[in-house]
């Protein structure tokens, strides 16, 4: 496979509010390749959104990237460690939008109500490219057309509140693509949308990815969306990537008890009507009260006393790109 465009190694992003410390991301590692989609899946509090925000260096206070590295291969071939950059420095601003475009869950709050959508797309173009006003406007219309907004020549002058949720999310994608980034981070891009609109947006992301050989990070809690879109999957639970591997192996040969349980517990349209679901007992612990050892141990069906609750399990490599953090596999074979 080609060189990764982005490599994250042992990323640690911690929040230190007055009450204690929350290890929102605790040692995440993954690689991103052009033209491929990495799905990061997990439930609330697993750190999937903070991971995305760490890559963009837009973690909210009191959070901070405290360790690890995020190596980006820039368009000129230079390797840059994003962790070492100044959050608001010139290079980081250039990377944000220029190299990495991003789409968030709530398009309403990400778009300004004071400027037309055209203004906003043009601003994004101006930030990274030296173009005239006329060129930027043409480019904006082109982008709106690309993301499937009907009558873009007219819509370019409308305001975000005049658009439906689906159209707003399309505008967000146009914004993210304005400076022709090579990476697209989409954080729950369809969660606020209806199912038929979701299908439209996923289709759009897939189409653009094929055309532009984008590397996509798709962050979601929805296993269905992951199965639909991802090439590789990282499953997160309470700040750790508990399992990562190719999408087919994750869904058809999951190894971590959490992945297995999660897959069993999701409702499916293919299930028998009124069939009971397998459940994961208990609920996700409070971020201040993370259990010691493997964080999944109190809810795990394969809990081994004296082992799982002692130290966190190391990563075990099962095949070339399938890794799991669980004591059930290859005792202590660290990578």
């Amino acid at each position: 496979m080609a060189e990764p465009i982005l490599s994250v190694r042992n990323l640690q992003t911690y929040f230190r509010p007055d009450e204690g410390i929350v290890r929102a991301v605790d040692g995440a590692s993954f690689d991103l390749y052009p033209g491929r989609t990495l799905g990061i899946v997990g439930e609330s509090g697993c750190g999937k959104s903070v991971t995305a925000r760490s890559i963009l260096r837009i973690v909210d206070r009191p959070g901070k990237v405290e360790g690890g590295e995020i190596v980006l291969r820039r368009h000129d071939g230079r390797l840059v460690d994003i962790v070492g950059l100044d959050e608001s420095g010139a290079e980081m601003r250039d990377i944000r939008g220029g190299e990495i475009g991003y789409v968030f869950q709530e398009p309403m709050s990400s778009l300004s109500a004071f400027y037309t959508i055209g203004n906003q797309v043009m601003e994004a173009i101006h930030l990274h490219k030296r173009v005239t006003e006329k060129e930027a406007r043409d480019r904006a219309i082109e982008l709106l057309h690309l993301v499937g907004i009907p009558r873009p020549e007219q819509r370019v002058d409308s305001y975000s509140f005049e658009l439906s949720g689906g159209l707003r999310q399309r505008v967000m994608i146009a914004l993210a693509l304005a400076a022709e980034p090579r990476i697209l981070i989409a954080d729950e891009p369809t969660t606020a949308l209806d199912v038929t609109t979701q299908a439209q947006i996923l289709e759009l992301i897939r189409k653009i990815q094929e055309e532009r050989k984008l590397a996509v990070v798709l962050i979601t809690h929805d296993m269905g969306v992951i199965a639909e879109m991802a090439d590789a999957v990282s499953v997160m639970y309470l700040g750790k990537i508990v399992e990562s591997g190719p999408v087919d192996e994750i869904f058809h040969a999951p190894k971590h008890p959490y992945t297995q349980a999660l897959l069993r517990s999701i409702p499916s349209v293919l299930a028998e009507p009124r069939s009971r679901l397998a459940t994961i007992s208990g609920s996700i612990p409070h971020p201040y009260a993370r259990p010691p050892g493997c964080t999944f141990n109190p809810r795990c069906g394969n809990f081994m006393p004296g082992k799982c609750d002692q130290a966190p399990p190391p990563a075990t490599t099962l095949s070339a790109d399938h890794e799991v953090r669980c004591f059930l596999y290859g005792e202590g074979v660290a990578t």
Binding site: T279, S281, G282, S283, P285, A289, P291, P298, R299
Partner: peptide, 16 residues
């Protein structure tokens, strides 16, 4: 009571 059991684990006096 499986769910109930798992829901009770780390309750210290301070948390209560």
């Amino acid at each position: 009571s499986e769910a109930a059991k798992a829901d009770t684990p780390f309750v210290t006096a301070a948390e209560e």
